[in-house]
């Protein structure tokens, strides 16, 4: 038989209101074709089932409960911003720490001593020179603690961030 049956896709398209085929030509075919009529009815029934309210219910005071949490939410947002500022400043401190690490303080100490210590007593001069030079070792300590802080802050931010990002 050289009948052009409707494909299931065409039937769905028609029911979606997106078919280019006219209603008349469908009805004409359905009159004489049992197979397509069956298929059409099945889909019609399925469609009317699919628009039924599935009864998905959230708790009745869902909205009010959430709204009552707004102050908390706003606070969380503020804390979030604070941590951004914190991380920013620690980052800058770390950068400075690294830079200072590569500066040789004993040279600075010598230079400073040459020009400004000349009026001071010899033992005061020595003490100043020594304390400036000893910064070289201390800087490593400062640098590493700043880096540790930075890593901790980043981890904290990642962990305490929104649960399902």
């Amino acid at each position: 038989m050289a009948v052009n049956h409707w494909t299931e896709e065409q039937i769905q398209e028609f029911l979606d209101g997106k078919s280019s085929i006219s209603k008349n030509s469908l009805e004409e075919h359905l009159k004489s074709c049992e197979a397509c009529t069956k298929s059409f009815r099945y889909y019609q029934n399925l469609y009317s089932e699919l628009i039924r309210d599935p009864g998905f219910k959230l708790s009745t005071d869902f909205a009010r409960n959430l709204v009552s949490r707004i102050p908390q939410l706003a606070q969380a947002r503020a804390r979030f911003k604070f941590s951004d500022v914190f991380i920013g400043s620690v980052g800058i401190a770390a950068l400075l720490g690294v830079m200072i690490f590569f500066i040789d303080f004993s040279i600075i100490a010598e230079t400073v001593a040459k020009f400004s210590f000349s009026s001071l007593k010899a033992d005061v001069q020595d003490w100043l020179r020594n304390s400036l030079s000893s910064l070289n070792g201390g800087v490593l300590l400062i640098g590493s603690s700043v880096l540790t802080l930075l890593v901790t802050a980043t981890l904290d931010r990642l962990l305490s961030g929104p649960k399902y990002r």
């Binding site: 599935p54 998905f56 959230l58 869902f62 909205a63 009010r64 959430l66 709204v67 707004i70």
Partner: peptide, 20 residues
């Protein structure tokens, strides 16, 4: 806050459809 409550009420069905 009232406006946020309105938004929730309006979109509660949509969100519950997706989530459920």
């Amino acid at each position: 806050a009232q406006a946020f409550e309105t938004l929730i009420e309006e979109h509660k069905p949509l969100v519950s459809h997706v989530v459920f």
